[in-house]
Design a protein around this nucleic acid. Structure first.
Lengths: 215, 215
DNA sequence: GTGATAAGTTATCAGTGATTGGCGACGCTG
DNA sequence: CAGCGTCGCCAATCACTGATAACTTATCAC
């Protein structure tokens, strides 16, 4: 007879018996991060994540309630990076047009560096029942709002110095954010479009937004 | 004995035996249009579409190769409407800032009037293999490019009259398009965000884009 | 009638996200 | 060291998805 204890029915990442709580969670997040970045969030299955993480698919649910929760966690972490970058861009900040442009670029660069986090946060489809935002308690959205708050502050300072074109700070900020988001999201969602070179495009866009928002 | 011919295993739209080719297709599109608008594209199943259309689920595949093809068809039709509207906005057009703003508003209004078509065209997730765009032969994208071409033309005219801020027409057009897309897509994807009133927001945005793009 | 065609059906497939029940190794008492 | 409880994990499974195959029915030309 064959050896009855011959397990491993399919080849798998060879470290099934490991993982103490916390680090397994990180391994799952790492696996998901890679797959999401490569294939896009909703083209990745929980089984693929589990296989790369070296565990079975149900084991995921010991660490995350849903697949969307995994995406949400990655998203929140990515936004922590964005918040950090924007804070760094405001170190020794004085509200000048040059610094203004610099902050806009920080936002754009972040979106292009973390397209999947950006997608999860701002580009995912809504749906009436069981939406992603409801399932995840809107955590990515909340993280995004904190970043938005930095913009409000920044525009407020410029307005106080009489540099803004209009008088409605909130309107100007939302419009500005929309302008930034448009470029980032289109570059992410439509990479096959015949864009001009990226750097001059970003430069043109940032300059346009500055002219449009400032006096 | 019960009547043996008691069909109708589940209550259904009571017109199974009908449908001559062409009109069935329209019924399917109508059903899908309504469901997509209500729940979002990827939260709607083919079975739901079929039930509302009054046919069985496999019968869909006699008219459309895939579910995405249904969305693509709706998208192309919606873009026909946008192209029509933009053509109408250019009747007797002279390249003035006022007419420029009017065309921007046509684009924004279209996106907000047809959020699902807009989502399919510009906001759907890419994926490496089996992407929506590949499956549908990029038809929605092509329809979108025609609209983009109108923008190029428009910006070109303004540039010829020396009204544009920069000298690179293509860069200015792509930046402008991104600016418009940003507002439309954010309003669609994040309706729960604490936006200011829509009309002043649109007015602010259009004014900002005009200041940014024109001299 | 008869064969061919078109349209729609039931039955089914592989793959998805998520749940259940039990197995086995660990750490703690005694 | 025996016993036991707990926890991490996995095989099996569920309901559902998009899509396909094979069969049945209605219609029409001849």
């Amino acid at each position: 007879m064959k050896s009855p204890a011959l397990r491993v029915p399919k080849s798998r990442s060879p470290r099934k018996p490991k993982g103490q709580g916390a680090e397994r969670r990180e391994e799952i997040l790492d696996a998901a991060q890679g797959l999401f970045a490569q294939k896009g969030v909703h083209a990745v299955s929980t089984r693929q994540i589990a296989e790369i993480a070296g565990i079975s698919q149900p084991a995921l649910y010991a660490y995350f309630a849903t697949k969307d929760d995994i995406a949400a966690e990655l998203c929140v972490r990515a936004f922590a990076i964005l918040a950090e970058r924007m804070a760094a861009a405001r170190v020794g900040y004085t509200p000048t047009p040059e610094n203004f442009e610099r902050c806009l670029r920080v936002y754009i660069d972040f979106g292009l560096d973390h397209p999947d986090a950006y997608r999860v946060a701002f580009m995912l489809e809504k749906s009436v029942d069981g939406s992603f935002l409801e399932k995840t308690g809107g955590r990515p959205m909340i993280a995004g709002k904190e970043v938005f708050a930095v913009f409000v502050e920044m525009v407020g300072e410029l307005h106080a110095r009489g540099l803004m074109a209009g008088d409605d700070v909130m309107a100007a900020t939302q419009s500005l954010w929309a302008g930034l988001h448009g470029l980032v999201s289109l570059l992410i969602a439509r990479p096959e479009f015949p864009w001009i070179d990226r750097e001059p495009l970003i430069a043109t866009h940032v300059a346009m937004l500055r002219r449009g928002a400032l006096k």
